[in-house]
Computed example of a mutant assay.
Amino acid sequence: MRRSTGGAERVGWRSAIAGASPVLLLLACAGAPSEPAPATAPAIVLPSLDQIAVDPGSIPDIGDSTGLPMELDVYRWSDAELSLVAQALNTLTGDCAERFGVAVPDSPDSGPREPEDMSRRYGLTSAAEAGATGYRFQATPGPTPARAPLDEDATAVLYGGKAQVRGKAVPPRGCAGQATTEISGADHAGPAEAVQDINSASWSLSRRHPLVTAAFARWSACLRPTGTTYGDPVEAMNDDRFTGQPTADEIEVAKADVACKVVAGTTGAWHTVEMAVQRAMIEANRPVLEEAQRAKARQLAKARQVVGRE
């Protein structure tokens, strides 16, 4: 039952790939595990905070943030689209690896995901979750099945690192890298770096906007009578006291946290400001985002071809 800061990192785009098979990791990482990330992604344009004008009267009351829309949603990938590309990557990788007598490990997961856990993007906002598990996500039933480690030859076949395996030439980036190039025409498949960067940057920028920091101050003042002092909701989520099984103290703090967000209008302010930040970033980065959409369309078309010929 882990805690998460939601948008603080790229967990909203990449975290759930961790349980996937080795080839699926290429949707999150470029090339072999030993290779550095490519420096080809264009830098995104960031607006300054004084460019983000929001009418305080337009801020709605928001309780639970689950399911809130984001301006960037139009550039996101659906679960079905990610699964399609994952299936195509697995097919191409498997066909290549079969020439070396190597089987691509099955994954207990149905494919990579792009989970934007809006319920935690602005801190804990669900009174039901707070009362049940404090700041933890509810545990998913059953452990993740263990997967046998790949041997040296199988790793080389999948990711490169050897010129030959069993007398046959290995693609420079292995079968998985070759599959990625075939699907995407590049060394990365899946969502464009620029889209992920905007998703992360908009969260970070909006967190510093005066309307949001004022809401944080009201929220913090509301919590003070409970004996807790936090600068913002992320600090509460990451309190080192809250480890192991949720305690009665953690649950009480979590319940007060959620209640004070409603009193202070914290979630409504943060979401409204972040929507404004994303609109500004989309406008400033439109050429990059349009190219990301074209690249997405090419990947999906190629993936459909691969899956259709199975």
Rank of each mutant, 00 (worst) to 15 (best):
V277T: 06
P172H: 08
P172D: 12
V11I: 08
L158E: 07
A292M: 07
S200M: 15
R218V: 11
P60S: 06
L158Q: 09
A97Q: 04
H271V: 13
L49R: 06
A295H: 09
V11T: 09
K255G: 05
P210R: 12
A163K: 15
T40K: 12
Q293C: 00
G161T: 02
P233Q: 01
G123D: 04
V307F: 12
R14L: 11
P22I: 09
C222H: 02
I62C: 02
H188E: 06
A37V: 06
E235C: 00
A128N: 02
E250G: 00
S206C: 05
L26A: 08
P38R: 05
L82D: 01
P191M: 05
N199S: 15
A269N: 13
V273D: 03
L24D: 14
S200Q: 15
A28G: 13
A148K: 08
V288C: 00
V234Y: 11
A236W: 03
V45A: 14
T181D: 02
E291T: 12
N90G: 13
G12V: 08
A28C: 03
D109M: 14
R14F: 05
G131R: 09
T180R: 03
G265H: 11
I44E: 13
G190C: 05
L92R: 11
A264R: 07
Q196H: 00
D240L: 10
E182G: 04
P108K: 10
I62P: 04
P149C: 11
D187I: 06
V23T: 06
K261C: 04
L24G: 08
A217R: 14
R241A: 08
A43M: 04
A292S: 11
M1H: 11
F100T: 08
S15A: 14
A292I: 05
D109R: 15
L223A: 09
L26Y: 07
L205C: 03
A303P: 11
V45G: 01
E182P: 04
D257Q: 00
A297P: 06
S184G: 12
T267V: 15
A88S: 08
G227P: 01
P287F: 04
S83T: 15
S184C: 05
P233C: 05
L158K: 08
R173F: 01
E81T: 10
R173E: 13
V11A: 12
V306C: 02
Q278G: 10
S110D: 13
R120Y: 09
F100I: 04
Q51Y: 00
A139T: 04
L25S: 12
A103E: 14
R2Y: 08
L84C: 02
P210N: 07
I17T: 15
A130Q: 10
L158V: 08
L150H: 11
G160Y: 09
R304L: 01
A269G: 12
C96R: 06
D73S: 12
A97D: 07
A254Y: 03
R224H: 13
R304Q: 15
C175T: 07
K168T: 07
C222T: 06
D187R: 14
R113T: 09
V195Q: 02
T272S: 14
T243S: 03
A236T: 00
L84V: 00
R10I: 10
P287Y: 08
A103P: 00
D240N: 02
T144P: 01
Y230V: 05
Y75S: 04
P143A: 10
D257A: 00
